[in-house]
Design a protein around this nucleic acid. Structure first.
Lengths: 211, 211, 211, 211
DNA sequence: AATGAATGAGTTTTCATTCAT
DNA sequence: GATGAATGAAAACTCATTCAT
C-alpha cells in the first residue's frame, strides 16, 4: 500500500519547484524538464499529479495567492480599527517573505500571464476583489465615500507599483523604505480629510471568508 | 531596384506585428510563425531583418520605450516649471495611446521578461534612470531633498502601479480617473511641504538625450 | 485467506475490460490505464496477472476465439448430417452474441493486429484451420472434391465478409438477414451439384479437439 | 523562390511511406518517426504538410480510396451491360495492385480504425454507398428488386470477405482463384432467376461522379 | 493480493533556424 | 528582397513497466 499523504507532499514539492524555476528563468522558459529536475523527480510525475503543465502553473499561482491571502487574513484578524486594517493589508503585501529576492519576479511573471490564461484571470480577480473590498470598507469608515473609493484604488495601485518595481530595479527598496512610502501615502490620504469627518461607521468589516 | 527605406519599413512592420501578437497571446506564445503571419510576411524574414527572434523582441521593446520616451521628451520640452515637468511625465505615461486596450498588457509582458533577458534589463534600466532623474530633479526644486527622493520613488511607483493594474483588471481606470489619482497624489506630496520651502533650485534640469 | 479462484476471476475481469475498451476506443487506444479503470482495478494488476499488456491482449483474443469455438463445438455436436454441420458453423458465427453492437468491431481490431503479432497469427491460424477443415469435410460429403474446396473457401469468406461489414456499416444486417444471405449462398453451392452426386462419404468428421 | 509543386510531391511521398509503415508494422505502431524515416524526411515535415499525424492517416486512407475508386470508375466506364458493370467492380477490387502482398493488411488496418475515427467513418461511408449503389443498380436490371438487394449485399460481403482473408491467411488466394470464386457466386446469383425475368430496365446506371 | 507512486522511454508536437531558389 | 521547404532540437505528453508497501 502506498504511503498516505504523498499526494499533498508531491504537489507541494512540484509547486515550489515551479515557483523557483519561474523565478530563475521566467515564465516562458519554465519547462517541465527544469521543474521536475528542480523537484528531484521525473518529468512524467507532473502528468501524474497535475494532469499537465498548465494545471501545474495554475496550481502554483493559486498557491501563491493562498499564501498571501493567509498572511493578509491573519493580520486582518489581529487588526481592530480601520487604519489598522489598512496597515494590515500593507504589511501582508510587504511581508519579508514577499520581498525575498526573486519573489517579486515570480509574481510579475504570473501577472503577465493573467490576461492570457482564463483560469489565472479568474484566480486573480477573486483575490483582487477581496483586497479591494477590504480596503474600501476600511477607508469608508475614515473618509467620505467618494474619497474612499479613490483612496482604495490609489492604495492598491501603490502596493502593486512598489511591488512590481521591486522586480525590475537592481536595488529594490528595502521593506523598511517600502513601508515608509506606503505609510506616508496612507497618512496623506487620511490627513486630507482630517477635518471633522465622523469616523464611526456602523457597518461591520467585510468577512474574511476563505474561498 | 529596391524601394528606398524598405529596410526601415519592414522592420517597423515586423515590430508592430510583434507587439500585436504579444498583446493577443502573451510573451510565451509569441512565435515567429504568428508574428510573420500577422505582418503578412514569411517566417524567414525575421532572420533576414533581425537575425533572430530574440533580437526582434529586444527591438520591439526598444521601439516601445522610444515611443514613450519621445512622448515624454516632447511634453518635457513644453514644460517650464518643476510641477509642470512632473505633470508632463504623468501625462506622457497616461497618454491615450498608452491606455489603449492591450497596450498595458504588452508592457506587462515585457516587464516580466526584463529580469531574464540582459538586453531588456539594460534598456529598461536606461529608461527608468532617466525618468527617475527627471522626477527627482523636479521634486528637488519643490521639496527638501530627502522628501524629494521619496516623492520621486513614490510617483514612479504610482505610475507603474496604475499602469500594471490597467493590464489586470476587467475595467481599468479611464485615463481621466488615472490622471486625477496621480494629481491628487502629487498635490499631497507637494502640499506636505507647502510651508515656506524655497522652491528655487539652482541646478539645471537633466538633459534630454536620446539613447 | 484469499478467495479460491481469485486468479481466474481477475483474469476474466481484465479480459472483459480489455474487450470493452478495444470495442470503444480501438486497438491503438486500448491503454492499460483505460483497461484497468474499466475493470475497476489498478494499473499494476495487469503485470500481476498477465505479465504485461501484450500478454493480456493475446489472452483476450484467445478468450474470444475460445468462446466462439465453444459455441461452434456445441452446435457441431448437435448436428448429424453434413448440411447441418455447415449450418452449425454459420449459426455459431452469426450467433446473437457475436452480433451484439461492438462485438464485430472488436474482432476487426484483433484481425488487423493478427499479421503483426506472431502469437495472434498462431492463434488465428489454429482456429481458422479447424473451421476450414470442418467446412471442407462437410462439403466434400455433398459435392465433388474440387467444388468442395471452393465452396469451403467461399463459405468462410462470406462469413468473414458479412461479419466485417457488420463492424463498418451504420446499420449492419440483422442476424436474420445475415442468416438468409448465408443460407441462400449455401443452397446455391449445394444446388449446383444436385445432380446425382453420391453424398455418402465414408470419412469421419474431423475431431473437435480443444486447443 | 521554392520549387513549385513540392507540396503535392511531398504529400504523396509521405502518404506512400505511411502506407508502407502500416503494412509492415500495423496501425498502432505506425509512428511519425518510422514514417518520416521511410520517406527519407525529417519528422517535423509531417506537421508542415499535414498539420499532424492524424491528418496524415486520414489523407492516406483517402488516397487509398481514391486509387481504388479511380480503378473502379475506369472499369465501369468501359462496361456496357449490367453484368459487365458487376464484373468491373469485382475486377477493380481484385486488381493485381490490390492483391500485392501487404496491401490487404493495410486496408484491414484502416478498416479496424474506421469505427473510431469519424473522418475515416465518413470517407468509408461515401465510398461504400457508391459501391453499393452501383451494384444494386446493376443487379436490379437483371433480377427482381428484392433479390437484387440481397445480391448486392452478398456480393459486397463476398468481396470484403475474400479481401480480408487475403490479409489473414498464410497463402492467400491468387487473384485467379479469387476471381473464379466471385464469378461463380455471381453466376449463381443471376442463374437463380434465369427464368423469364425481364432484364430490360429503363433506369440509367448511376452516375460516376467524383466526390 | 493489490495499489498507485514513480520512472523513463518513446511519441507527437512545436518552433526557431537555415537555406536554396 | 523574400519565400517557404526542411530540419532538428526541445518541448509536452503518453504510457507500459517496475516496485515498495
Amino acid at each position: 500500500m502506498p504511503k498516505v499523504g504523498m499526494h499533498a507532499v508531491r504537489r507541494d514539492q512540484l509547486i515550489r519547484a515551479t515557483v523557483e524555476v519561474i523565478r530563475d528563468h521566467g515564465f516562458a522558459d519554465a519547462t517541465i524538464a527544469r521543474i521536475s529536475r528542480r523537484a528531484g523527480l521525473s518529468g512524467g510525475i507532473i502528468a501524474h499529479y497535475f494532469g499537465g503543465k498548465n494545471e501545474l502553473l495554475v496550481a502554483s499561482m493559486r498557491w501563491l495567492l493562498r499564501e498571501l491571502q493567509a498572511e493578509t487574513g491573519q493580520r486582518l484578524r489581529d487588526a481592530d480599527s480601520p487604519p489598522q486594517r489598512i496597515r494590515a493589508i500593507i504589511e501582508a503585501s510587504f511581508d519579508a517573505e514577499q520581498f525575498k529576492p526573486g519573489v517579486p519576479q515570480v509574481w510579475l511573471a504570473f501577472y503577465a500571464q493573467i490576461p492570457h490564461e482564463p483560469e489565472l484571470t479568474r484566480l486573480h480577480r477573486v483575490y483582487m476583489r477581496r483586497l479591494q473590498s477590504n480596503l474600501l470598507h476600511a477607508f469608508a469608515q475614515l473618509i467620505p465615500r467618494p474619497a474612499a473609493v479613490d483612496a482604495a484604488e490609489g492604495m492598491a495601485s501603490m502596493i502593486d507599483g512598489i511591488y512590481v518595481r521591486a522586480a525590475l530595479v537592481e536595488r529594490p527598496l528595502d521593506t523598511g523604505r517600502a513601508h515608509r512610502l506606503m505609510n506616508e501615502y496612507l497618512e496623506m490620504l487620511l490627513g486630507r480629510h482630517d477635518d471633522g469627518f465622523d469616523r464611526r461607521d456602523p457597518s461591520p468589516p467585510p468577512m474574511e471568508t476563505s474561498s
